[in-house]
Simulated assay, not measured.
Amino acid sequence: MTDTPVAEMSFEQAMAELEQVVTQLERGEVPLEESISLYQRGSELRKHCETKLKAAEEKVAAITLDANGEPTGTKPVEGL
């Protein structure tokens, strides 16, 4: 686990750390208090990943295509 604030992480960084958290919790080899902290961190990481993924999906959905099906640019997506 890193000390990097979740809000500053890229999607890839957050996913990698989330996988580590899940692995540690699944093993059940950490004390209860640490498990609670890991669970809280994991919850923050999951939410961050979902937000980043939704933003990326919205950007992809905003790509406009010309008559030949070629991308011509993007249109603004409300809220981004």
Rank of each mutant, 00 (worst) to 15 (best):
residue 31 P to I: 09
residue 65 L to K: 15
residue 9 M to C: 09
residue 16 A to R: 11
residue 12 E to R: 04
residue 78 E to A: 15
residue 8 E to A: 09
residue 49 C to A: 15
residue 67 A to F: 13
residue 51 T to I: 08
residue 48 H to F: 00
residue 67 A to C: 10
residue 32 L to A: 13
residue 3 D to K: 02
residue 43 S to T: 12
residue 39 Y to A: 09
residue 59 K to W: 02
residue 9 M to P: 07
residue 60 V to P: 01
residue 31 P to A: 12
residue 25 L to R: 04
residue 52 K to I: 00
residue 20 Q to C: 01
residue 42 G to R: 11
residue 51 T to C: 07
residue 39 Y to H: 08
residue 49 C to L: 15
residue 33 E to A: 12
residue 64 T to V: 13
residue 3 D to Q: 14
residue 61 A to E: 11
residue 14 A to D: 09
residue 38 L to S: 05
residue 76 P to C: 02
residue 26 E to G: 00
residue 65 L to E: 15
residue 14 A to M: 09
residue 24 Q to W: 03
residue 4 T to E: 08
residue 27 R to A: 15
residue 23 T to Q: 04
residue 47 K to N: 11
residue 68 N to L: 10
residue 33 E to P: 04
residue 23 T to K: 06
residue 9 M to D: 13
residue 42 G to P: 04
residue 7 A to S: 12
residue 29 E to D: 11
residue 22 V to I: 15
residue 76 P to I: 13
residue 27 R to L: 14
residue 55 A to M: 10
residue 6 V to A: 06
residue 40 Q to K: 11
residue 15 M to C: 03
residue 20 Q to A: 07
residue 7 A to M: 05
residue 80 L to C: 02
residue 6 V to T: 12
residue 45 L to I: 03
residue 1 M to Y: 14
residue 14 A to H: 10
residue 2 T to C: 00
residue 14 A to C: 10
residue 16 A to I: 01
residue 76 P to K: 09
residue 54 K to W: 05
residue 59 K to F: 10
residue 26 E to M: 03
residue 25 L to T: 05
residue 53 L to T: 11
residue 23 T to H: 07
residue 17 E to Y: 02
residue 12 E to L: 04
residue 31 P to H: 10
residue 73 G to T: 05
residue 59 K to S: 03
residue 3 D to W: 04
residue 14 A to N: 05
residue 48 H to I: 01
residue 73 G to K: 02
residue 62 A to N: 09
residue 76 P to N: 13
residue 61 A to Y: 04
residue 27 R to W: 08
residue 44 E to G: 02
residue 44 E to I: 02
residue 56 A to N: 04
residue 2 T to M: 05
residue 40 Q to E: 15
residue 67 A to M: 10
residue 19 E to I: 13
residue 24 Q to T: 07
residue 6 V to C: 01
residue 6 V to Q: 05
residue 3 D to A: 02
residue 46 R to V: 01
residue 43 S to K: 09
residue 46 R to I: 03
residue 65 L to I: 12
residue 9 M to L: 10
residue 38 L to T: 00
residue 27 R to G: 13
residue 58 E to S: 14
residue 14 A to W: 01
residue 37 S to L: 09
residue 53 L to Y: 08
residue 19 E to F: 08
residue 30 V to E: 06
residue 50 E to M: 15
residue 76 P to H: 09
residue 42 G to Q: 02
residue 49 C to Y: 12
residue 49 C to H: 04
residue 7 A to V: 06
residue 41 R to F: 08
residue 47 K to P: 00
residue 64 T to P: 04
residue 10 S to N: 08
residue 15 M to R: 05
residue 52 K to H: 02
residue 31 P to S: 10
residue 43 S to L: 08
residue 54 K to T: 13
residue 24 Q to D: 05
residue 24 Q to H: 03
residue 33 E to R: 13
residue 34 E to S: 05
residue 32 L to M: 14
residue 76 P to Y: 04
residue 37 S to G: 08
residue 13 Q to T: 07
residue 53 L to D: 14
residue 13 Q to R: 03
residue 60 V to M: 13
residue 1 M to V: 10
residue 69 G to V: 08
residue 31 P to W: 14
residue 9 M to H: 07
residue 36 I to W: 07
residue 31 P to Q: 15
residue 39 Y to F: 09
residue 51 T to W: 08
residue 46 R to L: 11
residue 55 A to T: 02
residue 80 L to K: 06
